[in-house]
């Protein structure tokens, strides 16, 4: 992805964050998106990290989700078990960021293997906390380049699966796909200016539905 495409993706993700939300943030681009949202339109966004930090006000971009800068001056720290059971499992997260190598029609995510599990073409890091986050968060944001190999009809391995009652939003450099609460598959909801429905569909390995109120950003 070009630097420009990456910036566009970060900005688009930032726009999905609303003020006063409790946001579970990962490192890298999700962190940047959350900070941009705080600076632009959501000053009261509360940042929560899987490592147990709540209400972090990091000074520098952390390399890991447990960096000291996420803890100093935070509102709270808790154990990872409490974070998973009481905060994530308990449904306290409004929006969470997770990463994925593959995203399928149903909104299932794969961050475990490309190919067969026993003899993978590519071994990826695994779920980490993604399974719990997709199960617990009200909305999940995935940032991904729009590339055909990343959008199969069915992922090779279901590392994490969104709940029917939650919302899954896939923010890419060229379009936004979303699976709203109660729906059973991803739908094209937003196009970057200059993109066409056909061009986006060509990057997805299934017949992509298009929302009736398709927006252009």
């Amino acid at each position: 992805m070009s630097a420009e495409a990456r910036e566009r993706t970060i900005d688009a993700a930032a726009r999905w964050l609303q003020d006063d939300e409790i946001v579970l943030v990962g490192v890298g681009d999700p962190s940047i998106a959350a900070w941009r949202a705080r600076a632009a339109h959501a000053p009261n966004l509360q940042l929560v990290y899987e490592s147990g930090a709540v209400g972090s006000i990091p000074d520098a971009s952390p390399l890991s989700i447990g960096d000291p800068t996420l803890v100093a001056q935070a509102l709270g720290t808790m154990s990872v078990a409490d974070m998973f059971d009481l905060v994530i499992g308990g449904g306290r997260i409004d929006t969470a960021f997770v990463g994925a190598a593959q995203i399928d029609r149903r909104g299932c995510l794969n961050s475990t293997v490309v190919g067969e599990y026993a003899h993978p073409k590519v071994r990826l890091p695994g779920s980490g906390g993604a399974a719990e986050i997709l199960h617990g968060a009200k909305r999940v944001l995935v940032m991904s380049p729009l590339e055909r190999r990343r959008f199969p009809e069915q992922v090779d391995f279901v590392s994490s699966r969104p709940r029917v009652s939650s919302e899954l939003v896939v923010v890419t450099d060229r379009a936004v796909l979303a699976r709203r609460p109660g729906e059973d598959e991803l739908t094209l909801v937003e196009l970057v200016a200059g993109e066409t429905v056909e061009a986006v569909r060509a990057e997805v390995q299934w017949e992509l539905r298009v929302a009736s109120g398709l927006r252009t950003a």
Binding site: V80, D85, E132, L134, S160
Partner: peptide
């Protein structure tokens, strides 16, 4: 997963027969 591994440890420490991991 992170949640299932920490749940397994907690179950071990609490001498539970198993831990539910709905996620």
């Amino acid at each position: 997963t992170h949640g299932s591994l920490i749940a397994a440890l907690r179950a071990g420490g609490s001498d539970l027969p198993f831990a539910p991991v709905p996620a």
